[in-house]
Amino acid sequence: MLNLIRYREFAEYRDGRETNLTGREANALYSPIEFLGAIGAGPVFLSPVAEQVDGTDFTWEEFILVEYPCPAGFFAMITNPEFQARLVHKDAGVEKTIVMVTHLRPSAQSTDIQLPPPTHPPTVDDPAFELVHVMDFHEVAQYEEGAAEPERTGAQAWAEFQAGGNATATAIGVRLSAIFDVQGVLTGDLERSWDQAWLVYMPSMAGYQALLADPARNAASYHREAALSDNYSLVTHPVINNIPTGSDDDQDPPLLPPITDAGVGTLCNSDADCVGIGFCLNTGSGPGICSRMCGSGECGDGYVCCHSCSELAAPLLPFTESACMVEAFAGQLSNPPVSCSCE
């Protein structure tokens, strides 16, 4: 889950309570670390934004990536009444946020390649940083009229731009840290269809400036203009950076739930994606998983049927009456005050 955050200068509570808290201080009261830990989730990248070099509609102050084990775990967390009680502090402290559901793309880079020493290595006064690009591509690249270019997608035009500066980037010591595909916007910006987030390691600001001055890169910059409908580019110095490699050789448990023979667990954006299965189990926007109404023992391997939840919690749940839920996270719904029967 990708989070772009801008804080209020001073906290503003909707109930009108008086406070001397800053926006950051109010948001710190929301901090849901123990709720994340309870479902096996946690931040894998957290950084203040040192500089925003692209994107002018909002100036972001913090960039966070949180890894969740699966959609069901996320739903279990957000339906916890104690978690929901904390949201008042986030609302008071955060002026603007965009939250996107993302999936880490497997890395195609070999860790065995020996790269040459960077031409602009990091120093105490000029440390390395991660340059974050959050991008909305044109479906079809928008080249100027008369450009001698074949029709290509925005993503393909971005790749052409990257190829133009590859030689200089490699010499400088620039490397791609991670690519995240955006599966949907959960909150904050439903008008734009964001596509990808790139994290790019820069060995130093001097190296970054050298890359910006590269003639080959600049000659290819028209591909960049054709590719992007919108984007944010952020200079970050992460205080947490534990992004998994995303390689096909990773032995970590899969992020996605199992899919049963009946289709339960299939990724979905709406009920239309679950025809013949049941309904899309989500919070109203962004990807979820197909589930269905059920009875005890009817859901298939890896799932249990959760039903008979408390009347207090029922309006907050992403299903009515009953639903097949991932077994590993059903315990979150079984506990008070939600108190579903999951079997």
Rank of each mutant, 00 (worst) to 15 (best):
S339M: 10
D125P: 07
D54F: 02
I5C: 05
I172A: 00
R24T: 12
D249H: 15
L87Y: 10
D15A: 14
Y303L: 08
F35D: 13
Q183A: 14
E9R: 15
G278C: 09
L211D: 02
E18S: 13
A210P: 07
A314M: 07
A163E: 12
C280K: 05
D261W: 03
E298V: 06
G73Y: 07
A206K: 05
E34T: 15
C306D: 00
Q109E: 15
C70Q: 11
G276D: 05
V134Y: 13
Y232G: 01
Y208M: 10
E130N: 13
D126V: 03
V132W: 00
N3T: 11
I289E: 08
R8D: 11
L281Q: 03
P254A: 11
V99E: 01
A262S: 12
G288S: 05
W194Y: 06
S247H: 13
T266E: 09
F83D: 07
P48G: 04
M293Y: 09
I289T: 11
F45P: 03
T123Y: 13
T168R: 03
Q52V: 00
A272E: 13
R24W: 14
T283Y: 12
A323V: 00
R8K: 11
T111M: 11
A314Y: 02
G16T: 07
A11V: 00
V124A: 14
L228V: 07
C340Q: 05
P117R: 10
T19C: 12
A210Y: 02
Y30S: 06
N80Y: 01
S193G: 12
N80C: 10
A141H: 09
A178I: 06
S322Q: 03
G73E: 00
P258A: 05
F74R: 09
I243T: 03
E139F: 10
G55Q: 00
E18Q: 15
Y68M: 08
